[in-house]
Amino acid sequence: MIGRMLMVFRTAFARFARLLVALLALSTGVQSIDQAVAQDKATDRNSGSVVLSGTHWIFQAIDLGEVWWGPARGTEVFLRFSDKRVTGSSGCNRFFGEYTQSGKELALSELGKTRIACDPEIMKQESAFLDLLSGVTEVTFDGQLATFSNPDKGHLVLRRKIIGEPKTQHQSDSRYDRCKQAGGALVGAQNSQCVSHGEVAFSDGRTPISLDQCTGYFDGCNTCQVENGVLKGCTRKACSAEHSAPLCLVGDETLLDGVGRIVERRGRSIEIVFDDIVERFTLKKGLKTTGLEKGDEVFIRYLTSAARQRPKIIEIRRWKMPENGTEQ
């Protein structure tokens, strides 16, 4: 009975999403809803042979059988496929990897991501999304919806992005839009960044940078100078867009955040595992680590550079993500 109810719910959800797509298409240049529906049916007829390369998909829900999750407020989670490459955002970090597709069969490999710590609710979403994505074996299509299926853990439901469609409410409520509405300074390629109150927010949803500890930052294209939390100026290299995760610079070094697990500790040397990769760090002299033990999940802030043999941790604290998604 529960299984049949879920199937009915999924069908209703798909129909609602397809109607929404038709309405969006109408607002972005399609002449009528009938024309949008006709295009949608044409996609249905070819649903078994949709090629992912060159497409962009917006996250709608995580389907765990008896539980459905929607995107966390203020985040845009998406997948973008090009020739054998997949990139995207999980709402906090950018990820990247490779993929192969044969009809409905899909395999992703060599997945990696940036290591920025975000609010606990967003980190919980990111963990669930990437965990499901890494084990996807099949993709099926229903109009403008795609279901990426992980046979062991559940399904990801995404909607194909329509070129020129307006932002949804949760996207328009981003830090960038709030900064822009408050009169923040617009900089970067195509005014893609907004600077206000010691923070840089990005229009494409990349994680904002606090300028409090930075002497500069790299936006994926240009390098900007910061003094006492105030933006002083940027280089003017011509770029169509900034593609990589923004980086906080401290002198000749890069300041990074991450969440990992302690696997070894010897004096000021500490080993932390991120996504099954173990990295060795040096603790800042005098840094308090009272109560931290092997196996603890920790948030770290560290400095790294080409000249430094090991990254240096300047801040470390316990990080725990319980079931309710609130940090302890």
Rank of each mutant, 00 (worst) to 15 (best):
L186I: 11
D131E: 05
A42Y: 02
R261A: 05
Q39Y: 06
R45W: 06
S305T: 05
T326W: 02
R94A: 09
L133K: 11
T235P: 00
P322W: 05
V37Q: 09
L249K: 08
C224N: 10
V67E: 10
D83H: 14
A14V: 06
D131Y: 03
V77I: 15
F81I: 07
E110N: 15
T114D: 14
M321G: 07
E105V: 05
R206F: 03
S305C: 04
A22N: 15
L283R: 05
K113P: 04
P246T: 11
V250L: 12
L255N: 06
I116A: 08
E66M: 06
K312P: 00
V50M: 15
G188S: 03
R266L: 11
S305D: 03
L255V: 04
I209Q: 01
M123A: 12
L19F: 10
A17R: 07
V263W: 00
M5P: 05
D275C: 00
L108W: 07
K288G: 05
S134Y: 02
F281H: 06
L249A: 04
A117I: 02
D212C: 01
K294S: 06
G258Q: 04
G183R: 00
S210K: 04
P246N: 11
A189M: 01
F281T: 01
L283K: 05
Q101S: 10
V30D: 13
G198P: 00
